[in-house]
Amino acid sequence: MNWFGSKPKTNVPSQTNLQAHRAKQIDSLKKNNLSPIESIPNTEYRVTCQCGGNNIILIISLPPQFPQDPPTVTITPPVVHPWVDPTQKIVGCQNLNSFSMHSSLGHAIQSVVEEFKKNPPQIRSQPYGPQLGYPPVPPPNAQFSGFNPGGMAAGYPSPPTLPPSIPGGSRVSPVLDSRRQAEQSESTVTQNGGIPNVKVAFPELKKKSLSELNSILHEEEKVLEMIQNLPDVAKLAEDREKLSNECIGLARENLSKKPTILQMKQWVADKNSLFESMREEFESNQVQLMSESDKFQPTNIQTCLKVSLMEAEEEAENIVGELMDKKINIDEFMQKFIQTRMLCHTRRAKEEKLHQIIMQQGY
């Protein structure tokens, strides 16, 4: 018992700086909503993502000196992807290749998941071959029966398995089981990505012998006739005919609108020519307006008044010269001179007033 209130001593060692960074990096997986599963505590984690309809598992291995040393990420099941090498190790992710103490493990794994969702990897092992999910084409002597324990060659699909027994301990008889399998097979016309089920599409082949099947296989006309009689092929022909009729109807409707289109085109051409003529007339009128407006500028009017004033003064001097040369008498001189000098004073007054207005208005 601690009588003096001091804290009890514990033997648990304090967490090192590297361990704290390691825990922080592991928590970043949870913060990025990756839902990691801990396989080995603080060493191995697994993240599941769905890419292209397949479940991909990322195995994240943390070295002892992580995060000083980068993690190793492998993928299962075996896939084919530019980021994955033959050993199923992810080598194309830049965030993983340049991983350091300041990187985020959650962001790096999130970038891998986003790349696989954007470009789904191709699973190496498929139920019906290494690359495609289609069953191999059976040889010409293959049997078309439901169960062929000895006639199938190596590498072909195994016979269908029986469905599980009914809960409660009761079992289904083989006859009822085979009927149920037949109903399930006949309910699906196509299998394995759109390839027709031969038994359902061509039920008459069940009654033919092996020699008859071989003869049909080598007669292209009969094979084509059987394919053309398929419901999907017949529906395709109907759809094609329907689309062809719709295209023909649209073409005829477009041709019926041709006169209206030509009439509207001519109307647009007429309006365009009218617009061009009116534009030219407007531009010429605008040029004339600018020239006329220049004539009535205050500065131009002042210049014209100065010129008129000089002309009037020159005319008055000429009248005085005529009097000195005795070309006119005194009465005629008085009449012309007074009228000319009055015109000079009037123009001078107008010019001075206009100059005052120009200075005040700032023309």
Rank of each mutant, 00 (worst) to 15 (best):
L274F: 03
Q15P: 01
P203S: 12
F296P: 02
Q361P: 01
A349W: 00
S39I: 15
C51A: 15
I90Y: 03
E280D: 13
A201P: 04
V73Y: 01
P136G: 03
P135N: 00
N192G: 03
I261F: 14
L309E: 11
H81W: 01
E38T: 14
V198G: 05
L236K: 12
I56P: 04
Q88N: 15
L29A: 03
Q263D: 07
F333K: 02
M101P: 01
N95M: 15
L289M: 06
S14V: 11
Q122K: 15
E204V: 09
I261E: 11
S185A: 13
Q286M: 13
S284P: 02
H218A: 15
R347P: 00
L58E: 01
A234N: 01
V172E: 12
K30S: 11
Q339A: 13
N2H: 09
P138K: 08
T161C: 08
K258T: 06
G106W: 04
A234W: 02
Q65C: 01
E204K: 07
E221A: 13
V80I: 12
L323P: 00
K208V: 10
P159E: 12
R240C: 01
F333T: 01
G5V: 00
V233M: 14
S61C: 06
L250V: 05
P71A: 09
F147C: 05
S244R: 14
I90T: 01
W3A: 10
G194Q: 10
G146Q: 09
H355Y: 05
Q361I: 07
M152E: 10
E225D: 09
P164C: 07
R22D: 04
P36Y: 03
F147I: 11
K24Q: 10
E238N: 06
V91H: 06
Q143E: 09
Q143S: 14
F337P: 03
R279L: 14
V113G: 03
E292N: 08
K242N: 13
N285R: 14
E332R: 15
I261D: 04
L210K: 11
S35C: 09
I328S: 04
Q191L: 12
D270F: 06
V80A: 09
K306T: 04
S6H: 13
P86W: 00
P8A: 14
S103Q: 05
P63K: 10
P127E: 04
D232R: 12
V113R: 04
